[in-house]
């Protein structure tokens, strides 16, 4: 391809000598740079705040101590076991346990109604399990005496 008619070297020199950017280009670049830095800082601060809030919320929702026992499941299992024994036995300890159960059931119902969190519910289920254990022990004892 012959390009003798086009003198690119001369053209390149002429362009180098002639082209000049606007004098305010550098100040414009500085402004854009500052704006970008501010925007990035805002995003960073917002991310840190969001992470902090999320972490706090997760901690707040966790039970106060590590849940070694599922007290709700244990209470339900004890209740099933308790059904195997006659309910007409009258004993002071059994009456006290049943009264306690009614109180806890009311407290549990109220807690669920107001959307209480695990840290409030778990102690109630624990207390219910303990009372059911007591009641079960009483009924087992009474059944043994009756058989004798």
């Amino acid at each position: 391809m012959s390009t003798d008619q086009l003198n690119f070297s001369e053209l390149a020199r002429g362009l180098e000598a002639g082209a000049e950017a606007a004098p305010d280009l550098w100040p414009r670049i500085l402004v854009a740079h500052t704006q970008r830095r501010r925007r990035r800082l805002r995003v960073r601060v917002a991310s840190v705040l969001l992470a902090g809030m999320t972490g706090t919320a997760v901690l707040f929702m966790l039970p106060p101590s590590a849940p070694g026992t599922d007290w709700q499941a244990r209470a339900q299992a004890l209740e099933i076991e308790l059904r195997a024994y006659p309910t007409d036995m009258v004993d002071a300890n059994a009456r006290e346990a049943r009264s306690g159960l009614q109180r806890i059931d009311s407290a549990l119902q109220a807690a669920y109604d107001r959307g209480a969190r695990a840290n409030e519910l778990v102690p109630l289920w624990k207390e219910r399990s303990e009372l059911l254990s007591t009641l079960l022990a009483v009924r087992q004892q009474s059944a043994a005496i009756t058989r004798i």
Binding site: Q5, L6, N7, E10, L11, R13, G14, L15, G18, A19
Partner: peptide, 11 residues
Amino acid sequence: VTARPLKQVSL
């Protein structure tokens, strides 16, 4: 540009 040679380069 065959018909007419290039003039001085300018912007």
